[in-house]
Structure formats: C-alpha cells, structure tokens
Simulated assay, not measured.
Amino acid sequence: MGIAGKKYIELFCINEHCSLMQTQKEGIRKIILQVARKEFIEKGFKDASMRNIAKDAKVGLSNIYNYFRNKDEIFREILSGLLSAMDKVMEEHNSPKYISVDIFSSEEYMRSQIDMFVKLIDNYKEDFKLLLFKSSGSSLGNYREEFIELQTQVGKEYIALMKEKFPTINGGVSDFFIHTMSSWWMSIIGELVMHDLSHRELEDFIREYMEFGTAGWKKLMQVKD
C-alpha cells in the first residue's frame, strides 16, 4: 500500500474517532439535561444543585462545565423549546392574515387558535411550570413580566394596524387595558398548567376563552357586522 493509501486510512480512522467522540459527548449532554430537568422540577432553579446534577448524571462536577458554562445555561437550554414557541406566537400575532375583521366571525380562525394554544399547553406543561413558578434566581426569573410588556406592545401595534386598515373601528383602547389583558392571559396559562385538565377539558376552556375574548374585543373596537 502506498503512502497516500496509508494516510487515507489514518485520516479515516481519525475522523471515525472524532465522530464517535462527538456522539459520546452529545449523549452525555443529553443525560445532563434530563437529570437537570428532574432536579429543577423537584427543587426549582434557585435550590437546584449542580453537584446533584453531576452526581446523578454520573459526570464529574468539574467535567460538567465542559458541556455548560453554568446552571443558568442548563436551565435556559431545557426551556429553549418553550421560549422559541412563545416567540413564534408573538411574531405571528400581527401577521397580515390576522389584520382582518373576519377574525371576529371566522370559525376557521377560531379553530386554528384553539389548536395552537391547546398544543402549546399540551407540549410544554412542565416547562411552563418551571418558567412561571420555579425560575426565581435565573435569568428567566422576570420572564412573566417581560412577556406581559412585550405582549402589551404587540397588542398596541395590532390595534394601530387594524385602525389603519379599517378607519371606522375604535383604536382608542387604553394602554392599561391592553396591559391588564396581557397579564390576565399569563395568569390563565398558569392556571391551565397547574390543574390536571384532560385534553377535552383544555380544548373546551380555550374555546370558551376565545369566544368570550373575541366578543369583548369586537364590542370594544366597535367592529360592525
């Protein structure tokens, strides 16, 4: 076998070794996250112990920092799916398809919103509990207040966009009312995740909430049939 052939085999073996090492690292990282989730759920962020996480994951305490810089980074990684889902909800809220008076009477719109929120609660129930009730001491400790502020701004922009497109509607809804409705919605999410509702009960509640809210906003914004 020529020199070129030997070098190819050596390179192949090195690449295979690197691939195996990467797979092992990803496996350890996944175990750390699984163990940390259990620790956070049981104790909350503030009282969760990196020492316990390392012990239960069978990783040396110093070695765990080769995977995560600190406890906060682990916490945020665990909640990354929920955080992205919530960001997406806000990003889509004022999309052109929703700047329409048809949303006040469209069963298709109602169904899509019910499905979206039911899926959100179903998929991230434990994550919501961590985020809303057990994140004190983390960089997400003020998430509720920050999200309410964001939702308030998005709500104000939504009404302005509706007023621009439909000049006859009432665009003078007070900022404090929008803020209060945003706060109420976060409280509702908290109630939903803390109660053991069946899928059907959750769906029925979301429909009730949507129908109640839609009728109220329609009246408040003076949208004509």
Rank of each mutant, 00 (worst) to 15 (best):
I9H: 00
D196G: 02
W217I: 02
D102G: 13
S95F: 09
I14C: 00
I188C: 06
K97T: 09
F75V: 03
D56T: 05
F128H: 08
N15K: 14
L161N: 14
D56H: 10
M162K: 11
R144P: 02
L131V: 08
E16L: 08
E77A: 07
A215R: 14
L202N: 05
M194W: 04
S138C: 12
I188T: 13
F212D: 08
I53N: 07
N70T: 01
L83E: 05
D175S: 15
G171D: 05
D72L: 08
M50I: 10
V173I: 15
N70H: 02
F45R: 04
V89P: 00
D56V: 00
A4P: 00
S139I: 09
W184N: 09
F166S: 07
E145A: 14
Q24D: 05
C18M: 13
D127V: 12
Q24C: 05
T23I: 11
S135R: 07
R200C: 06
E201F: 02
S106K: 10
M86W: 03
K30D: 08
E108L: 13
K25P: 00
I169M: 12
I78A: 04
I178Y: 12
I189M: 15
S136R: 15
G213F: 07
Y98L: 07
N94P: 05
G2S: 13
F212M: 15
C18G: 01
I99R: 09
